[in-house]
Design a protein around this nucleic acid. Structure first.
Ligand SMILES: [Mn+2]
Ligand SMILES: [Mn+2]
Ligand SMILES: [Zn+2]
Ligand SMILES: [Zn+2]
Lengths: 146, 146
DNA sequence: ATGTTTATCGATACAAGGTATCAAAACAGG
DNA sequence: CCTGTTTTGATACCTTGTATCGATAAACAT
């Protein structure tokens, strides 16, 4: 049996190493903080948890995770950004609980079908889109608080 | 025949007067600048066109127009906000040309149908949504420039 | 182990897009 | 014209980042 003692390498970290980026202590700390975060989080929350890590570095690292598709950035109704670990590989959208910040991914074939239908309706060639669904999640509906 | 000489009151202005806000010279200037803007514009562009009007006032006035539903705020793929005059009354979404900034409204029944379908798929009660389509518009496709 | 190269880091300044404060000015109605 | 209420501009401040840059740490090869 191959030892797996040191195998609990963060998925986040692995993803950017695969992109050719170096494995550094600072990045490990950021990845750990992210993985310990519930639901979703802000960049500043990570900064606050890691006072020894420079603010610019936190943002740089988040950006690396984003471009490796292991992290996603969502936008609340008021425009405030939040980050969440990205679990789905393929193209998808997000539903965000405006009460607790829980982010779920969904990949509705109907959505993509609508986009194709819109290709006739809107003038010009569609080059991209943005879509987010805001919800009050199950936990928040049952639980009194939040 | 009733005189219409002074009837060219800005629709923008009228809308916020209807909400009970005062008719001021500053607001008229902002409305004029908006109405003279092509396609879509940024808040800072208005500020630059009206150096005599305070920056805070420009933002305040944009906000008034937004809440009166005569202006809409869209988000480019990189997150940069732009404003455009809102012509449709009812709920709608926007397609934005990423090349020239032209904003068109669309109100696809299919989109709303998808949202209702998603109500079963996503956990929790849907409280809102956000959707934008990015295009390269007809003019930008034919015209060499842009 | 040690050097060498290059990526990464933290501190700092800066940027975009707004908002809070507050005294001064402009409205609107009588 | 008076007067109470809104609105305004200046200013400071806030949030979410990004550019710069000298110091540090990885990675790799001796
Ligand atoms: Mn995701
Ligand atoms: Mn609109
Ligand atoms: Zn919730
Ligand atoms: Zn265009």
């Amino acid at each position: 049996m191959v030892s797996t003692t040191s195998s609990s390498q963060s998925d986040l970290l692995l993803a950017i190493e695969d992109q050719g980026h170096r494995h550094t202590e600072t990045r490990r700390l950021v990845a750990e903080a992210i993985e310990a975060s519930p639901e979703s989080f802000t960049a500043e929350e990570i900064c606050a948890q890691l006072p020894a890590v420079g603010r610019a570095t936190v943002y740089r690292t988040l950006k690396l995770f984003l471009s490796a598709d292991v992290l996603c950035k969502v936008t609340l109704p008021d425009g405030a950004p939040r980050y969440a670990i990205d679990t789905g590989g393929r193209h998808h959208h997000h539903s965000i609980c405006t009460s607790c910040g829980a982010v779920s991914e969904f990949r509705a074939s109907t959505v993509e079908r609508v986009l194709r239908a819109l290709e006739r309706e809107v003038e010009g060639e569609i080059t991209g889109h943005r879509m987010e669904i805001y919800v009050r999640c199950g936990k928040c509906q049952s639980g009194a608080a939040n």
